[in-house]
Amino acid sequence: MKTKSFANLPTDVAADMMDGSRSVFWTPARITGAFILVCLLLFAVLGPVFISTDPLHQNYNAVLVGPGVDGYLLGTDHFGRSMVSRLAHGAQLSFAMAFVTAISAAVPGILLGVIAAARGGMVERGLVALSDIILALPGLLLVLLLLAFAPGEFGPLYLGLALYLWVEFFRVARIETARVITSPSVEATRLLGFSRLYVFTRIIVPALTGPMATLFAFAMGSAIIAVSTLSAIHVGLRPPTPELGAMIVELVPYYSEAPLQILMPAIGIFLLVLGLQLMAGRKS
């Protein structure tokens, strides 16, 4: 009701109000999201530089000690390894891996989606069939198949995840592009002599930015969760590599003795996904 009544305001006023509400990119939600992401990034990038403790160094005299005890800032895990050091290294690895995975899923997914919608015909049908085939396979099964070639390695793990995650980008990009491309604004723009490239950069890209940013945030979250799930069945990254998901899995048996330790990597993942969502979220 409120947005509707804006359209009926006298034009001078409506213009001022609309321009005013549009220029606000840094909403409180975005500022919070950016703050969380910057803190996490600083921790992941600078942490391993400044924390001198080796994340793999074991100290059996201080197993599962609480935060602050024996000079361990956030305590130790079941092998007496420093939690703060493992978290910093793990965050770096997890975030980098999630980012690389999401990018390699997003770029081909979006491009293929736009191509499918723009070309139509056999190209579109072929690509849709391909995406349906992948969707019909359980995602983790695909990763497991690839992992069979090189267990515990990052390469096939990453490839398998990207192969599975691109479908979502493809489907949304295709539908969104198809919607925009049939709109009068595209027809009018083409009639005025503008190139396909202009239509792509000025109409399709802006229309895709919002939904793709949201999907990207979700894809990064799913990548981290998928890696930790695979660690749980001992086919993901191998211990002792510090990785947030693997750390949770390793610490599960000690939950009752050291609940804080298992929460720390979980909070890391939670904050990352939350930060990304707050940044990506559009004002309704």
Partner: peptide
């Protein structure tokens, strides 16, 4: 084809939504 132009029923739908008219005319 450029010599055959069309005017649309719903004026806003024929323009690029986020773009100012100045931008549209500058590009043209």
């Amino acid at each position: 084809a450029m010599k055959y132009q069309k005017i649309y029923q719903d004026p806003p739908s024929a323009f690029i939504a986020g773009q100012t008219l100045g931008r549209a005319f500058a590009d043209l």
